[in-house]
Design a binder for these strands. Structure first.
Lengths: 343, 343
DNA sequence: CTGAAAGCGCTAACAT
DNA sequence: ATGTTAGCGCTTTCAG
């Protein structure tokens, strides 16, 4: 049975040597005689010694801990990104402190404050839906605490970030709808202070131009991206005198809500109306019909963000901020491909 | 602009008082004159002082950090439990260090070792699928480091745990299948070293007895709970000379795999074969047909586990281990209710 | 009412 | 080759 937590002092006492000798032996300092070093290591192993990270941290002002702030903990998108962060962090000897803003600006500020107070070596943050004000990042930036944003980002000229090619993705999926025969393509957009919402909206408009379609404001609704709000705006779209023949939801959660409402109105997807989303959630494949969407390399986004952060943490000088843009993949499923009638 | 991290020393220097005076003032020690205390607090606030948790931790041997080990980070089940843990932890001033065993025993041992090395004040653990050997918990238990297991548990006589009434849940859902008209109810079971798998299997057998059905080994398959393995055993069940008219999958992930295979074989759920799962994943409602399942109070499981752990952390004496059993809810959806033909 | 000093576990500069 | 000392930031006696 091992004692609670063994310290260098314990080992030193056991062997009647000084603490610093033990310290040196354990880190293979050349000055220590091989025999003594061996003896010390044997005891350390037997007693299951592991250095106290608090003491080490206090000394060199490093906690070897990275803080993460995500809008929620439960969707596949964020949890798989966290998984990617965790992997790279662990490989580099860091722990991660995960906090959730629950999509609230106030909670996000709270999270940042807490992480700062707990002296994390750096932070990885995805903005909450509500975040349209960025002063709570001042303390982090001004104190040159390593920081990386991902997906929903801000201050990109000062802070490194990992995002996807939202504009291209939206353009591509809208083009796909056109190629599938859609003429009146609606878009359910998100809050325009979010880069992802703004860029996807732009991509949508670009695709309209690509195909010689006119931008029609009546076909664009803005949602706060909740299921409830999305249901409301979907009803509005469906009750238009001349309803859309395709709907592009800003993300899959929105698309699922749209799907529910369309089904409720006994319309057929894709024959009456096509439907696509963005951000391929796991369940896109198991809904009925399977949802055409744009796959994000979520795990890799997490890995990349963590890599950028670790780099900043070990750098002597503050590196220039970089913007990493990850590629997405359009995945065509049944929700956007009209079924052939009777073979 | 604030300096990187303000210490008591900085404040003391500014006001020409001693460090201990500042320390006392900040924690409202009665010995300090109100005026001085005020002055000190003003400076502390202005400079955004927050005590260094490393120093504090070093002193009282508490990190105010709880370690969590889960089999994976990405399914709704675990991420919502983590969400519950996070909430209670935060309310009590604790941070959580989340690690994933990725369903591997070896990685689980690694996680435990790392959390131990990082001096967490306590741990919350859910066993990996592979875990059939418990010696890596010895160090935790022997050193009386607070520990709580949840869902997949072991050593329940020594360690507190939070579980659900698996036996009852399985019995209830099997009874439901019988009441829906099933006569040949198959069960896809899990590894029997896991309490959840064993108990659900028992519940299944109890329900058979309840309804005067004979236990038929040919209707029970054991899966490692991956989609791949489940697909294989499903094929075996479906190709039986006399195939089952209902399948009870040990969990929803298994049930989804079964569903895919049944659909592939162009059979109808529930009319040809009924299907139910356990552990209501979010997507149970959006698959087609919606899956009958047993809802777990995931968020509450996390909260309860965290509460038990925090209790142990602040207790002077090691409290008696308790087993909290949470209630589940059977949620009947279309996958287990035959459609009426033509009204 | 306030200050000085010791100590939590560790490292690194400075002795010996 | 090994020991001593100081100090990271904080709390807590013990002194004044």
């Amino acid at each position: 049975m091992t004692r609670k937590h063994i310290s260098l002092k314990d080992i030193a006492a056991e062997l009647n040597v000084s603490i610093s000798t033990v310290s040196r032996a354990l880190k293979n300092h050349p000055d220590i005689s091989p025999e003594l070093a061996d003896k010390i290591k044997t005891v350390a192993n037997a007693w299951n010694y592991s250095p106290n990270p608090l003491a080490k941290g206090l000394l060199n002002q490093k906690t070897m801990t990275l803080g993460v702030v995500v809008p929620d903990l439960v969707t596949y998108f964020y949890s798989s990104i966290i998984s990617g962060i965790e992997q790279v962090a662990r490989e580099n000897g860091y722990f991660i402190l995960i906090t959730s803003s629950y999509e609230s600006l106030e909670k996000e500020q709270e999270c940042v404050k807490n992480l700062l107070a707990s002296r994390v070596d750096g932070m990885i943050i995805c903005l909450s839906k509500e975040t349209n004000d960025y002063i709570h990042f001042d303390t982090i930036i001004d104190n040159e605490i390593p920081l990386v944003f991902f997906d929903r980002v801000c201050r990109t000229s000062e802070v490194s970030s990992v995002v996807v090619n939202n504009r291209e993705a939206a353009r591509q999926i809208t083009n796909h709808l056109f190629q599938s025969g859609a003429k009146r393509i609606a878009h359910i957009a998100g809050p325009q202070h979010l880069n992802i919402a703004k860029e996807r909206f732009e991509g949508y408009k670009m695709a309209l131009t690509d195909n010689g379609l006119n931008y029609n404001p009546e076909l664009v609704e803005f949602s706060d991206m909740t299921s409830e709000d999305t249901t409301l705006v979907t009803r509005r779209l469906l009750s238009l005198p001349n309803p859309p023949d395709a709907i592009f939801g800003i993300n899959d959660v929105v698309a699922f809500a749209v799907m529910k409402e369309i089904k409720k109105q006994k319309k057929n997807i894709p024959n009456d109306i096509m439907l696509v989303g963005i951000t391929d959630e796991f369940h896109a494949t198991i809904v009925d019909p399977p949802l055409t969407s744009v796959m994000h390399p979520t795990f890799e986004i997490g890995q990349e963000a963590a890599r950028l952060l670790v780099e900043q943490c070990i750098a002597k000088e503050k590196p220039q901020p970089v913007q990493v843009v990850m590629d997405t993949t359009l995945v065509v499923r049944e929700s956007s491909v009209k079924k052939l009638l009777a073979k």
